[in-house]
């Protein structure tokens, strides 16, 4: 879009090749940047593990089940 804006930015040399790519198709580096960002965002949540509420919920369901089974006997 605005190639002029990029003049003088650090790392400029590495981008020269990419800028020759035709529009409408993503270069592999752009795809990989999007992939990195997506995974970093996703993995940030995954690394939070299992919130207590879910462990607690399953535990309560188990207790309820035990009570029902005892009641049924």
């Amino acid at each position: 879009m605005k190639d002029d804006d990029k003049a003088g930015r650090p790392g400029q040399m590495q981008t020269e090749l990419n800028q020759r790519k035709p529009r409408g198709r993503l270069g592999r580096d752009v795809q990989s940047k999007i992939g990195q960002q997506l995974r970093a965002m996703y993995d940030g949540v995954v690394s939070e593990g299992v919130p207590d509420r879910f462990n607690e919920m399953l535990r309560q369901l188990d207790e309820k089940k035990d009570q029902n089974e005892k009641g049924a006997d």
């Binding site: 879009m1 990029k6 930015r9 790392g11 400029q12 590495q14 981008t15 990419n18 800028q19 409408g24 993503l26 270069g27 580096d29 752009v30 795809q31 990989s32 940047k33 999007i34 960002q37």
Partner: peptide, 16 residues
């Protein structure tokens, strides 16, 4: 991917 690149104005790796 194409739409995201567009929305984030990524035209090359350096843009991101």
């Amino acid at each position: 991917r194409t739409r995201l690149a567009d929305l984030l104005s990524i035209e090359s790796a350096e843009d991101f």
